[in-house]
């Protein structure tokens, strides 16, 4: 672990403040690491993924002995990941590695607080590079739209992990506004048709080797006029196009995940404007006044205290009978 530095001058202090944890976080920086051997396929795929991630991307050009899933050397691999994360203020990694057993493997690593949160390994089966398609490309730094198609992305834990990983990768930054004319490209993630054994209740029992393929495609968008406010969208393939298979993975530690999912407390103003969920029976009217609705239970009118008068006490017959008895 890096030593915490006490700022000695204003420049260092500014740099440290920029790295300090914030309530609303900046975009995550990704580091692209090459393993001991990377083939041409992996190199090109990593280059394209990096082109999509720019400007929040750092490339490590040298080879590194890093095998995060290998039990024998995982601790050294993870400690180097943590070191790089602290050194570069990065919280995402893509590790490319080609071996005989797992050709063209990409490992996505997500960090929390400088420690590894979860990992995901995919194998590249087929890839088309950005340069292979002679089509218009998106501007670097523009936010992509993301599209996930398949019911597995809402049901199967492995695919849900892939979804959140890719989301953190390209769209993790929480933004308050988006320029509508700046939406230039879309990253579409889709699956092969779901095999029948995944539709049964115990989907986890199925072998992980036969999970359906994942297709990642990127398209640039064209907005055509439709006669309404909403434009009609047409897509042009941009590249990269990847066909992936899911291999090894490491789930997030539940305790660490709980820490990572903590949200800042909502401000009073935001709650009133309807951000939080605790906004029942409250509304702000046109004058900006907060109006509430109160629900009162049904009133029991028999217990209502009215003015006490002799004539109203009990039934008349009852009183008559009482009087006759005493006489």
């Amino acid at each position: 672990m890096l030593r915490t530095v006490k700022p000695k001058n204003a420049r260092v202090k500014r740099a440290l403040d920029a790295r300090a944890p914030k309530e609303v976080e900046d975009d995550r920086t990704a580091i692209f690491v090459k393993g001991t051997h990377t083939g041409e396929v992996v190199n090109n795929v990593m280059k394209d993924l990096m082109a999509l991630k720019r400007p929040c991307a750092i490339s490590f050009s040298k080879k590194n002995e890093i095998r995060p899933f290998d039990t024998a050397s995982s601790s050294t691999s993870i400690s180097s990941l943590e070191f790089w994360s602290a050194k570069n203020d990065a919280s995402l990694f893509v590790i490319g590695q080609t071996t005989k057993k797992r050709p063209n493997a990409l490992t996505f690593v997500r960090m929390f607080d400088g420690r590894v949160l979860d990992m995901l390994e995919v194998g590249v089966e087929k890839s088309v590079n950005m340069n292979d398609l002679k089509t218009p490309k998106s501007t670097p730094g523009h936010k992509p739209l993301m599209h996930f198609a398949s019911e597995l992305f809402t049901t199967h834990p492995r695919f849900m992990q892939l979804k959140t990983m890719l989301l953190s990768f390209y769209n993790g930054e929480e933004i308050s506004e988006i320029c509508l004319s700046g939406l230039e490209h879309v990253i579409s993630v889709s699956c092969a048709p779901t095999p029948p054994y995944l539709n049964t209740a115990d989907a986890d029992a199925a072998p992980s080797t036969s999970l359906p393929k994942v297709h990642i495609r990127t398209y640039t968008t064209r907005f055509l006029s439709s006669g309404t406010k909403v434009p009609r969208v047409e897509l042009t393939p941009m590249g990269p196009s990847l066909d992936l298979t899911l291999w090894r993975h490491q789930e997030a530690d539940p305790e660490m995940l709980k820490q990572a999912m903590k949200r800042p407390k909502l401000k009073k103003q935001d709650i009133e404007s309807g951000l939080g969920k605790k906004r029942k029976n409250m509304e702000v009217d046109e004058m900006g006044d907060l109006r509430g609705r109160i629900h009162v239970g049904a009133q029991d009118l028999n217990k209502l205290q009215t003015r006490k008068m002799k004539g109203l006490k009990g039934d008349v017959d009852e009183r008559e009978s009482k009087r006759s008895k005493t006489e």
Binding site: F112, G172, C179, L180, G182, A260, R263
Partner: peptide
């Protein structure tokens, strides 16, 4: 150009650093 005001996320993602 027009800036669309985005709502709060439905399914939040894990943070990169602690609060």
């Amino acid at each position: 150009g027009p800036l669309a005001q985005l709502p709060a996320p439905i399914a939040p993602l894990p943070r990169a650093k602690h609060l």
